[in-house]
Simulated assay, not measured.
Amino acid sequence: MGEFCGTEPLVGEILGLRTFRIDDSGTLLPLYSDGAWYDGVNTAVCSPPTGSHHRGPHRVPADDCECGFYAYGSVDAAVQNRQTRYVQAVVSCWGDVVAGTKGVRAAHARVDALWMSPAAPSWLRARVSTRYPSARLYADAGAMLAEHPLTELDCYERPRPRRVGPVVAAVVGIAALLGLGLLPFEMLQGSTALWTAWLLVTGAVAAGTGWLMVGTHGAGHFAAAFVMAGVLAWLLAPVFGITGWVLRVPLLRGIAVAVGGYLLALRPHYFPVVRAARERAFCGVRA
């Protein structure tokens, strides 16, 4: 959230880049909520999952809250989100605009232009075009950005090149963590190094799980808490012997779903389409 949060609100119209999910009715949806966007002007309100009602009424966006419409300030920042391979949209942001190092949060936003992957079915394109007549649909993302250049702000930082070392270290660390949860309890107790490592890792994960559960105030925090709880159950499984496999089921199921979803996305001509809900909450009030 800090990457979209600055010290002072900006006033004026700023062009940014963002992505959407699209349901089978042709409605544009944020990635983490079902608050659909209107054609034309959208006005932000503070509500979950990005905002919080506990602060009471306040100006949107607020520097100490996560509310507002989000947009990336550059293509390099936007493409770090995997969904941009399917959908990219140039949006105008105005009103109170809080700028950060990767993009902005705004009180008002409008979809000006939209690019959809060539894998998107023609019937979906037709429905999106009908639902958002004021947004121009492009067949080429480069052409869209050439005709709708993004606003460059001084606070934007250029993305740093990805380093392989930290990624490899993270993979090795996760593999080691999962390996500790697969070892028989007798083997863990029989080795001072393994026993110390298991106690330290299990204690750290337990503390992290407790901290997340106590401090949850958004959808992302709840998701992280559940993942950490699954990892904790995995680490505790050796204590219960054969019956400990029951504790490994949640994490195994999550891994299977994640891997399965990734493999499905590699299919030729794949394009994600969300099933439309019967009742849809909209992002804001048309102005």
Rank of each mutant, 00 (worst) to 15 (best):
L251D: 00
W234G: 00
V273E: 09
E157S: 02
L180H: 04
G56V: 11
V79G: 11
A78V: 03
W195M: 03
G260P: 00
A170K: 08
R127A: 15
V231Q: 02
V167G: 12
G210I: 00
T192H: 13
G95Q: 05
A89F: 04
G179L: 11
N81H: 13
T243D: 12
S52H: 13
L114P: 02
D154F: 05
S122I: 10
A175G: 06
P238G: 04
F185M: 15
T43M: 12
M228Y: 02
E152C: 03
G190E: 11
V239E: 06
G40H: 10
A223D: 05
S74G: 09
G181T: 15
A169F: 04
G100F: 01
W115L: 12
I242P: 06
A106V: 04
C67F: 06
R105H: 03
P61R: 13
W245R: 08
C65D: 06
Y86V: 08
T7N: 12
F282H: 06
E147K: 09
R110H: 06
W37H: 08
V90A: 15
T202Y: 01
Q189K: 15
G103P: 05
R127C: 14
Y86K: 07
A143F: 04
S47K: 13
T27Q: 12
P30E: 12
I14T: 05
M228I: 01
P48T: 15
S33G: 11
V91Q: 04
C67G: 07
V11W: 13
P250I: 05
R125H: 14
W37Y: 15
L194G: 05
S92N: 07
A119P: 07
L153A: 03
G165K: 14
T202K: 01
R55K: 14
G173S: 14
V45A: 15
K102H: 05
G26Y: 01
M144N: 06
A44R: 09
Q80S: 13
Q88Y: 05
W211D: 01
V172A: 15
A219C: 02
C65A: 07
W211I: 00
V227M: 04
A36I: 10
V257M: 00
S25G: 05
F4D: 13
W37E: 08
A229D: 05
L236Q: 00
R110C: 10
P161N: 11
G190F: 11
G254H: 07
V257Y: 02
A193Q: 09
P159W: 08
A44I: 10
I255C: 01
A169H: 05
E186N: 14
L180E: 06
Y32D: 00
R278V: 03
P272M: 03
E279G: 07
H217V: 02
A120T: 07
P61E: 11
R131V: 13
A139Q: 12
